[in-house]
Amino acid sequence: MSDFLKKTSVAMAMSSAILSAGAQAHFLLVYTPKVMLEKPAEIPLKLVFGHPMENGHTMDMEQPEQFFVKFKDKQIDLLNTLKPVTWKGAHNDAKAYETSYKVKRNGDYIFVAVPAPYYEKGEDIYIQQITKSYVNKGAMPTGWNEPLGLATEIVPLNKPYQNYVGGTFTGKLLSDGKPAAGIECEIEYINTKVDLKGNAFGKENLGDVPGSAVVSITDDNGMFTFGIPKAGTWGFACLGSGPVSEHKGKELSQDAVLWIDATELK
């Protein structure tokens, strides 16, 4: 019996290893170009499901399940403001979404997208990336380091909108509000220019694509740290950390995604 259990767990470990190797590099973007605002502004927001480091294939999105912004203790539903758009990836066109939001008062604005599970044919699994992006107005911090109570989420321990090249970023991964240990988090940046008017990624990459996925494994407290080597919009995708593991009879990888901004300190 114990032998059977061992074999089963080895088989399960192997299959999950294979799955996560195949699942690498999907990132849901909740993108806006300027994340630290001094004055009130109407900011554009783009929801695109792609492979930002490779600037590779862009995937079709269905109508997201949720899209909202958390500001102080208010949660403002933005789902009905989303408009479907055709996003021009470097290699293909895909369905994506856009909206805009008027930022006025000082504080932290946390944009959250819960997409519909995406069926990844190549792996015969569903992927659902619960994604957070941050914007600050007026330099006033109002809760960027607080969890939102999502199924799974990365809680930042450095301001997500203000990171510097050569510095580090630390995040704490939660699943159902509890630290999630031993989870692989993939790390990428948007390795091309984003054309906001044209709803397109550039054809050219900004830099080299690393030879294998850049990853960090969460420790016993669900924490990971990453040294930021280059300015840009960096994303962290912690794979399969969410509590839901099945969708329509197939495996679901419910991931936590967080975007941060890094600049050179001149």
Binding site: P40, N106, G138, A139
Partner: peptide, 24 residues
């Protein structure tokens, strides 16, 4: 910490200012 203040014209003849400090 540093002081923070922003003001807005409410468009109805009044002005609203909000303040705080950089540590929240």
């Amino acid at each position: 910490h540093t002081p923070l203040c922003s003001c807005y014209d409410n468009g109805d003849g009044t002005v609203l200012c909000e303040g705080g400090f950089s540590d929240g």
